[in-house]
Protein backbone atom coordinates (compact mmCIF):
# COMPACT_ATOMS: atom_id res chain seq x y z
CA UNK A 1 0.00 0.00 0.00
CA UNK A 2 1.38 3.33 -0.96
CA UNK A 3 -0.17 5.05 2.01
CA UNK A 4 1.93 3.04 4.47
CA UNK A 5 5.11 4.64 3.25
CA UNK A 6 3.56 8.04 3.81
CA UNK A 7 4.67 9.01 7.30
CA UNK A 8 2.23 11.88 7.50
CA UNK A 9 -0.73 9.65 6.78
CA UNK A 10 0.35 6.84 9.08
CA UNK A 11 -1.96 7.92 11.88
CA UNK A 12 -4.94 7.83 9.58
CA UNK A 13 -3.89 4.56 8.06
CA UNK A 14 -3.78 2.89 11.45
CA UNK A 15 -7.32 4.01 12.20
CA UNK A 16 -8.43 3.11 8.74
CA UNK A 17 -7.07 -0.38 9.13
CA UNK A 18 -8.86 -0.61 12.44
CA UNK A 19 -12.11 0.57 10.95
CA UNK A 20 -12.34 -1.40 7.77
CA UNK A 21 -9.56 -3.96 7.86
CA UNK A 22 -7.93 -6.12 5.25
CA UNK A 23 -9.57 -6.99 1.98
CA UNK A 24 -12.87 -5.61 3.26
CA UNK A 25 -11.34 -2.17 3.47
CA UNK A 26 -10.27 -2.24 -0.14
CA UNK A 27 -13.54 -3.71 -1.31
CA UNK A 28 -15.64 -1.07 0.43
CA UNK A 29 -13.42 1.73 -0.78
CA UNK A 30 -13.60 0.31 -4.28
CA UNK A 31 -17.36 0.14 -4.02
CA UNK A 32 -17.63 3.82 -3.09
CA UNK A 33 -15.32 4.80 -5.91
CA UNK A 34 -17.13 2.59 -8.43
CA UNK A 35 -20.47 4.07 -7.34
CA UNK A 36 -19.42 7.66 -8.04
CA UNK A 37 -17.67 6.69 -11.26
CA UNK A 38 -20.73 4.93 -12.68
CA UNK A 39 -23.20 7.47 -11.39
CA UNK A 40 -21.31 10.71 -12.03
CA UNK A 41 -18.11 10.44 -14.04
CA UNK A 42 -19.16 8.16 -16.88
CA UNK A 43 -22.48 9.89 -17.72
CA UNK A 44 -21.00 13.38 -17.60
CA UNK A 45 -18.00 12.29 -19.65
CA UNK A 46 -20.41 10.82 -22.21
CA UNK A 47 -22.24 14.14 -22.30
CA UNK A 48 -19.10 16.15 -22.98
CA UNK A 49 -17.70 13.66 -25.51
CA UNK A 50 -20.96 13.57 -27.47
CA UNK A 51 -21.18 17.36 -27.41
CA UNK A 52 -17.98 17.40 -29.45
CA UNK A 53 -18.64 14.17 -31.41
CA UNK A 54 -19.64 16.00 -34.59
CA UNK A 55 -16.51 18.12 -34.53
CA UNK A 56 -15.68 21.43 -32.88
CA UNK A 57 -17.18 23.58 -35.68
CA UNK A 58 -20.57 21.93 -35.21
CA UNK A 59 -20.23 22.42 -31.46
CA UNK A 60 -19.60 26.12 -31.96
CA UNK A 61 -22.50 26.32 -34.38
CA UNK A 62 -24.86 24.71 -31.85
CA UNK A 63 -23.75 26.93 -29.02
CA UNK A 64 -23.89 30.15 -31.04
CA UNK A 65 -27.29 29.36 -32.52
CA UNK A 66 -29.34 32.53 -31.92
CA UNK A 67 -31.80 30.98 -29.52
CA UNK A 68 -29.14 29.03 -27.64
CA UNK A 69 -26.83 32.02 -27.31
CA UNK A 70 -29.62 34.20 -26.04
CA UNK A 71 -30.65 31.56 -23.53
CA UNK A 72 -27.07 31.28 -22.27
CA UNK A 73 -26.72 35.06 -21.97
CA UNK A 74 -30.02 35.30 -20.09
CA UNK A 75 -29.05 32.47 -17.74
CA UNK A 76 -25.61 33.87 -16.95
CA UNK A 77 -26.98 37.40 -16.61
CA UNK A 78 -29.77 36.49 -14.21
CA UNK A 79 -27.34 34.19 -12.38
CA UNK A 80 -24.87 36.99 -11.73
CA UNK A 81 -27.67 39.39 -10.75
CA UNK A 82 -29.08 36.86 -8.31
CA UNK A 83 -25.60 36.26 -6.86
CA UNK A 84 -25.15 40.00 -6.27
CA UNK A 85 -28.62 40.40 -4.76
CA UNK A 86 -27.92 37.44 -2.50
CA UNK A 87 -24.68 38.99 -1.26
CA UNK A 88 -26.53 42.20 -0.43
CA UNK A 89 -29.81 40.90 1.01
CA UNK A 90 -28.33 37.69 2.38
CA UNK A 91 -25.80 39.62 4.44
CA UNK A 92 -28.53 42.02 5.63
CA UNK A 93 -30.74 39.07 6.58
CA UNK A 94 -27.92 37.35 8.45
CA UNK A 95 -27.17 40.62 10.24
CA UNK A 96 -30.76 41.04 11.40
CA UNK A 97 -31.08 37.37 12.40
CA UNK A 98 -27.88 37.34 14.48
CA UNK A 99 -27.85 40.83 15.99
CA UNK A 100 -31.50 41.72 16.51
CA UNK A 101 -33.65 40.36 19.31
CA UNK A 102 -37.32 40.14 18.43
CA UNK A 103 -40.16 37.68 18.97
CA UNK A 104 -40.31 35.03 16.28
CA UNK A 105 -36.61 35.29 15.45
CA UNK A 106 -36.03 31.55 15.84
CA UNK A 107 -38.94 30.71 13.58
CA UNK A 108 -37.84 33.23 10.96
CA UNK A 109 -34.30 31.88 11.07
CA UNK A 110 -35.59 28.35 10.54
CA UNK A 111 -37.76 29.50 7.64
CA UNK A 112 -34.69 30.79 5.84
CA UNK A 113 -33.66 27.12 5.43
CA UNK A 114 -37.00 26.19 3.90
CA UNK A 115 -35.84 26.57 0.27
CA UNK A 116 -33.40 23.72 0.98
CA UNK A 117 -36.35 21.42 1.66
CA UNK A 118 -39.07 22.76 -0.65
CA UNK A 119 -39.05 21.23 -4.14
CA UNK A 120 -37.98 23.93 -6.58
CA UNK A 121 -40.98 23.19 -8.77
CA UNK A 122 -43.20 23.96 -5.76
CA UNK A 123 -41.26 27.18 -5.23
CA UNK A 124 -42.07 28.10 -8.82
CA UNK A 125 -45.76 27.30 -8.31
CA UNK A 126 -45.81 29.48 -5.18
CA UNK A 127 -44.24 32.43 -7.05
CA UNK A 128 -46.65 31.96 -9.96
CA UNK A 129 -49.65 31.93 -7.62
CA UNK A 130 -48.64 35.17 -5.88
CA UNK A 131 -47.33 37.14 -8.86
CA UNK A 132 -49.13 35.47 -11.79
CA UNK A 133 -51.12 37.56 -14.29
CA UNK A 134 -54.47 36.70 -12.70
CA UNK A 135 -53.33 37.21 -9.08
CA UNK A 136 -53.98 40.33 -7.04
CA UNK A 137 -50.33 41.39 -7.17
CA UNK A 138 -50.08 40.48 -10.86
CA UNK A 139 -53.11 42.54 -11.89
CA UNK A 140 -51.87 45.49 -9.82
CA UNK A 141 -48.52 45.48 -11.57
CA UNK A 142 -50.16 44.84 -14.95
CA UNK A 143 -51.98 48.15 -14.49
CA UNK A 144 -48.52 49.79 -14.45
CA UNK A 145 -47.53 47.69 -17.45
CA UNK A 146 -45.12 45.59 -15.43
CA UNK A 147 -45.15 41.86 -15.95
CA UNK A 148 -43.62 39.65 -13.26
CA UNK A 149 -44.47 36.05 -14.08
CA UNK A 150 -43.77 34.99 -17.69
CA UNK A 151 -41.19 37.79 -17.69
CA UNK A 152 -37.68 38.32 -16.35
CA UNK A 153 -38.65 39.53 -12.85
CA UNK A 154 -40.34 36.17 -12.29
CA UNK A 155 -37.11 34.36 -13.14
CA UNK A 156 -35.16 36.49 -10.68
CA UNK A 157 -37.76 35.99 -7.92
CA UNK A 158 -37.74 32.23 -8.44
CA UNK A 159 -33.94 32.12 -8.36
CA UNK A 160 -33.85 34.28 -5.22
CA UNK A 161 -36.29 31.88 -3.56
CA UNK A 162 -34.27 28.74 -4.28
CA UNK A 163 -30.89 30.33 -3.39
CA UNK A 164 -32.08 32.26 -0.32
CA UNK A 165 -30.19 30.24 2.34
CA UNK A 166 -26.77 30.32 0.64
CA UNK A 167 -25.38 33.68 1.78
CA UNK A 168 -27.43 33.92 4.98
CA UNK A 169 -26.09 30.63 6.31
CA UNK A 170 -22.52 31.37 5.23
CA UNK A 171 -22.42 34.82 6.82
CA UNK A 172 -24.18 33.99 10.10
CA UNK A 173 -21.34 32.02 11.73
CA UNK A 174 -18.82 34.67 10.69
CA UNK A 175 -20.96 37.40 12.25
CA UNK A 176 -21.31 35.38 15.43
CA UNK A 177 -17.55 34.89 15.63
CA UNK A 178 -16.56 38.54 15.25
CA UNK A 179 -15.03 39.72 18.48
CA UNK A 180 -17.33 42.11 20.35
CA UNK A 181 -14.20 43.73 21.81
CA UNK A 182 -13.05 44.72 18.34
CA UNK A 183 -16.34 46.38 17.58
CA UNK A 184 -16.40 48.15 20.96
CA UNK A 185 -12.85 49.35 20.50
CA UNK A 186 -13.80 50.89 17.16
CA UNK A 187 -16.80 52.64 18.72
CA UNK A 188 -14.79 53.89 21.71
CA UNK A 189 -12.18 55.26 19.32
CA UNK A 190 -14.97 57.31 17.78
CA UNK A 191 -15.78 55.38 14.65
CA UNK A 192 -19.28 55.96 13.29
CA UNK A 193 -21.53 53.00 12.57
CA UNK A 194 -20.67 53.00 8.88
CA UNK A 195 -16.96 53.09 9.66
CA UNK A 196 -17.31 50.29 12.20
CA UNK A 197 -19.00 48.22 9.56
CA UNK A 198 -16.37 49.03 6.96
CA UNK A 199 -13.33 48.39 9.13
CA UNK A 200 -14.48 45.63 11.49
CA UNK A 201 -17.22 43.71 9.72
CA UNK A 202 -16.67 44.18 6.02
CA UNK A 203 -13.24 42.47 5.79
CA UNK A 204 -14.48 39.51 7.83
CA UNK A 205 -17.79 39.13 6.02
CA UNK A 206 -16.61 39.67 2.46
CA UNK A 207 -15.03 36.26 1.73
CA UNK A 208 -17.95 34.32 3.19
CA UNK A 209 -20.56 36.45 1.44
CA UNK A 210 -18.65 36.39 -1.82
CA UNK A 211 -18.06 32.64 -1.95
CA UNK A 212 -21.66 31.92 -1.00
CA UNK A 213 -22.83 34.45 -3.58
CA UNK A 214 -20.77 32.65 -6.20
CA UNK A 215 -22.28 29.34 -5.12
CA UNK A 216 -25.75 30.82 -5.45
CA UNK A 217 -24.89 31.95 -8.98
CA UNK A 218 -23.73 28.41 -9.74
CA UNK A 219 -26.97 27.03 -8.39
CA UNK A 220 -28.99 29.62 -10.31
CA UNK A 221 -27.52 28.85 -13.73
CA UNK A 222 -28.60 25.21 -13.43
CA UNK A 223 -32.07 25.92 -12.05
CA UNK A 224 -34.90 24.29 -13.95
CA UNK A 225 -37.95 23.33 -11.89
CA UNK A 226 -38.98 26.76 -10.63
CA UNK A 227 -38.06 28.52 -13.90
CA UNK A 228 -40.12 26.24 -16.08
CA UNK A 229 -43.27 27.31 -14.22
CA UNK A 230 -42.68 31.06 -13.89
CA UNK A 231 -40.67 32.01 -16.97
CA UNK A 232 -43.10 31.21 -19.76
CA UNK A 233 -40.03 30.07 -21.73
CA UNK A 234 -40.34 32.49 -24.63
CA UNK A 235 -37.25 32.40 -26.92
CA UNK A 236 -35.20 35.64 -26.80
CA UNK A 237 -37.27 36.75 -23.81
CA UNK A 238 -37.47 34.28 -20.94
CA UNK A 239 -35.99 31.05 -22.28
CA UNK A 240 -33.12 30.07 -19.97
CA UNK A 241 -30.36 27.65 -20.93
CA UNK A 242 -31.55 24.66 -18.85
CA UNK A 243 -35.07 25.06 -20.29
CA UNK A 244 -33.54 25.33 -23.77
CA UNK A 245 -31.63 22.10 -23.09
CA UNK A 246 -34.87 20.42 -22.08
CA UNK A 247 -36.59 21.68 -25.23
CA UNK A 248 -33.80 20.31 -27.42
CA UNK A 249 -34.07 16.92 -25.71
CA UNK A 250 -37.83 16.91 -26.27
CA UNK A 251 -37.48 17.84 -29.93
CA UNK A 252 -35.00 15.04 -30.53
CA UNK A 253 -31.78 17.03 -30.72
CA UNK A 254 -29.83 15.59 -27.78
CA UNK A 255 -26.43 16.59 -29.20
CA UNK A 256 -27.41 20.24 -29.46
CA UNK A 257 -28.64 19.92 -25.89
CA UNK A 258 -25.31 18.35 -24.93
CA UNK A 259 -23.37 21.23 -26.49
CA UNK A 260 -25.25 23.90 -24.52
CA UNK A 261 -25.04 21.70 -21.41
CA UNK A 262 -21.28 21.52 -21.77
CA UNK A 263 -21.04 25.31 -21.80
CA UNK A 264 -23.22 25.47 -18.69
CA UNK A 265 -21.12 22.77 -17.07
CA UNK A 266 -17.91 24.72 -17.70
CA UNK A 267 -19.39 27.83 -16.07
CA UNK A 268 -20.78 25.84 -13.17
CA UNK A 269 -17.42 24.18 -12.54
CA UNK A 270 -15.56 27.49 -12.78
CA UNK A 271 -17.90 29.04 -10.23
CA UNK A 272 -17.58 26.00 -8.00
CA UNK A 273 -13.78 26.10 -8.15
CA UNK A 274 -13.78 29.86 -7.53
CA UNK A 275 -16.00 29.58 -4.45
CA UNK A 276 -13.97 26.67 -3.08
CA UNK A 277 -10.76 28.60 -3.65
CA UNK A 278 -12.04 31.56 -1.62
CA UNK A 279 -13.22 29.26 1.17
CA UNK A 280 -9.90 27.43 1.33
CA UNK A 281 -8.01 30.71 1.49
CA UNK A 282 -10.16 32.01 4.31
CA UNK A 283 -10.07 28.68 6.09
CA UNK A 284 -6.28 28.68 5.95
CA UNK A 285 -6.16 32.19 7.34
CA UNK A 286 -8.50 31.32 10.17
CA UNK A 287 -6.44 28.30 11.08
CA UNK A 288 -3.16 30.17 11.23
Amino acid sequence: MTARSNAEGSEHVRTADALLPGPGQRALRGLALAYVLVLVAIPLATLVVLAFADGPPVFVERVTDEVARDALVLTLGTGVLVGALNVLFGTATAWVLTRYRFPGRGALSALVDLPLAVPTLVAGVMIAVLYGPSSLVGTTFAAWDVEIVFAKPGIVLALLFVTLPFVVRAVEPVLAEIDVAEEEAAIVLGAGPWRVFRTVFFPALLPAALSAGIRSTGRAIGEFGSIVVVAGNIPFETLTAPVYVFGEIESGAPRAAAAVSTVLLVFALALYVGATWIERKVGARHAS
Binding site: P43, L44, T46, L50, G222, F224, V245, F246, S261
Partner: peptide, 24 residues
Protein backbone atom coordinates in the same frame (compact mmCIF):
# COMPACT_ATOMS: atom_id res chain seq x y z
CA UNK B 1 -11.30 12.04 -7.41
CA UNK B 2 -13.85 10.49 -5.05
CA UNK B 3 -14.23 13.79 -3.19
CA UNK B 4 -14.57 15.87 -6.33
CA UNK B 5 -17.05 13.50 -7.98
CA UNK B 6 -19.14 13.30 -4.82
CA UNK B 7 -19.44 17.10 -4.87
CA UNK B 8 -20.12 17.42 -8.57
CA UNK B 9 -23.90 16.80 -8.53
CA UNK B 10 -24.29 20.05 -6.58
CA UNK B 11 -22.84 21.99 -9.51
CA UNK B 12 -24.76 20.24 -12.28
CA UNK B 13 -28.23 21.14 -13.52
CA UNK B 14 -30.70 18.25 -13.06
CA UNK B 15 -31.72 18.53 -16.71
CA UNK B 16 -28.12 17.97 -17.66
CA UNK B 17 -28.02 14.83 -15.51
CA UNK B 18 -31.10 13.54 -17.26
CA UNK B 19 -29.52 14.29 -20.62
CA UNK B 20 -26.25 12.60 -19.67
CA UNK B 21 -28.03 9.35 -18.78
CA UNK B 22 -30.22 9.64 -21.85
CA UNK B 23 -27.09 9.77 -24.01
CA UNK B 24 -25.65 6.80 -22.15
Amino acid sequence: LLGALADLPLAVSPVMIGLAFLLL
